[in-house]
Write a protein that binds this DNA or RNA. Structure first.
Lengths: 191, 191, 191, 191
DNA sequence: CATGAATGAGTCTTCATTCAT
DNA sequence: TATGAATGAAGACTCATTCAT
């Protein structure tokens, strides 16, 4: 009789929104942003095309929200308020964490690399990307400096590139990429 | 005003084809495959849309030919008929070569990563990719085995991943990626 | 906390209805009927989309009711029960009244002309329009006949057209249209 | 075998463009701009939807080109290079011309009034409208001044409004509007 | 060999309307 | 009575591909 409460509506919206973002992330990661149609998203989410636009003003807005929410989660994980100091133990922990994050959120990372590899299409990352990565690079630089390397910054950048490459190989050819072994080798080599 | 010889026609066709592929590679790399229209390709190549279809049966066929020709060139460079043996000197040479190749053919590699990151869209690489990479991995495995590593295969895979990551960073953020320094560090660390 | 009486409910409904019609008239006049969305109306009226349909069965029904109510008001003003006789004094009064009506209800007249200029879309006026205008034309015809014109009916039609044109110019380019002066000239010329 | 000549293509384009504009003008005038779908235009023109966009970049661009081309024609007719002087004879000629123009291009004028009555939607006329009308008003002002009127400018504006109103009545209710008689009355009254 | 007009399926998006609550 | 989530049909626009010339 009476309309739903504010709270009920809030709940419905929250759920739907997550559902749409979830489904869209999967499709964007699998088939690419421009190859994924709103139709496909709506149909996999089991809703009508029109409803999508009740939650996101456009396909691009949907993508942006997915990316930003993913990035936000990420920043939470790589807690930036930890002191700039990385012990050997923490370094190992950091590597483990990184692997876990990629493994836990494969879809997000696939989308990440797909978008990265096509910057002219949609600059979705703004400065957020560098803002996230830079502190990490700095911490790693410090770490390698303390380890006595002559060019710790390049060392850090190399390490970053290595992690990118590992993620790439893991995501796109997991069958031929023995993650655990690789992790071990990394720790031996860089830890 | 005598009619052109068979050969001259052949020559014209060949040139046109290369021209189209060249232009298309640039556009695909910059803007992505699905975002690049036949119109854009034809217009940048200075020919008519219709003519495109005289040389390539479809947009996808064009892409495939670009990729395959690029892969073929690649295999030529990493000459597979060299013995499976990699001296320290040759290792350094190999790294230098790898860097040169990426730097020389940026467009191809951008397209490569973009396609890699979206396998569901177009499986352009068939088995060609593994066929190219596997021998390299084997050679590297041998190399690392001789160096005395306990898990030389993972070491080789890691090295491959590293090179991927380095290429990625170089291609998509060249300004913040000091290639030469990185190269040096790689040689020190892995050579 | 006693329940509202029938009458109070009736009152509320009436108010809501007026409010919706008022807001819709403004929007239709400003942006056009088909360009105005139900959403826009509801939101400017501060109610929900659904409630709109509680008062009007459709967008078109809303438009019709707006137009008809406007026309009804109009007929009240140009009281048809006055005798068919128009003295010189009454003629001046009639002109003044006409100007006042247009100035007082700009939105309605804008909508009126917009709808008039697009009869194929929505024939909202049915016969009502002619029913309203015809008596006026007759009265004017009589007036001009008494003034001794040879073709009083055409004279009356011309006068009607003139008033239309004046309204049009006033409504859509008020800055460049000196209404008061124009009114004076009309009275001089036709009075 | 060989492609069409430049000229042939030019010819084809010219024809198609006119055809589309012609059909679109009719529909816009009859049903209104926003109520007329590209589908309707294409289908009445006997072409595919897509082809429309080969000639006009958007629906709005199509409208603009129709309006501008109509305005251009108009300016040709009301030749602006005539001296600013209007004899009695010329005045009569001017009125006749005006009637002829409206009668000859009913669709254009219907569209004109429909757009005028909905300025917020699309400001298609820019300044073109005033640029066209202002010189006419000036000429009329001079004319009425020479005739000895005390407020010749208002007289001219009134005359303009009258012509608008006449056009309106003629276009939207031709059956009840005896143009020829009206014309006669205008000449008598204002000539 | 070469052109570009033409097609039509498919894309994103909007919006009047319905309905469970 | 009142809400706004949900639908679905329709709209503007794009683009790979075909084909007469």
């Amino acid at each position: 009789m009476s309309p739903r409460t504010e709270n009920q509506y809030e709940q419905i919206r929250e759920n739907r929104k997550h559902q749409i973002m979830h489904v869209a992330l999967e499709l964007f990661a699998e088939k690419g942003y421009s190859t994924t149609s709103i139709n496909a998203i709506a149909s996999r989410a089991g809703i009508s095309k029109g409803l999508m636009y009740n939650y996101f003003s456009s396909k691009e807005a949907l993508l942006r929200e997915i990316v930003h929410s993913g990035m936000a989660e990420l920043m939470d994980v790589f807690d930036p308020n930890k002191d700039n100091f990385l012990t050997d133990e923490e370094f190992v922990f950091f590597i483990n964490e990184s692997f876990r994050i990629v493994q836990d959120r494969k879809y997000f990372w696939k989308l990440y690399f797909a978008l990265l590899a096509q910057p002219a299409v949609l600059n979705v990352f703004d400065n957020r990307l560098r803002d996230t990565v830079l502190p990490l690079i700095r911490i790693m630089t410090d770490y390698f400096r303390r380890k006595g390397f002559t060019d710790p910054e390049s060392e850090a950048l190399l390490f970053g590139a290595l992690m990118d490459g590992v993620a790439l190989n893991y995501l796109y050819d997991p069958e031929h990429f023995p993650v655990e072994k690789i992790k071990k080798v990394i720790i031996e080599r860089f830890g």
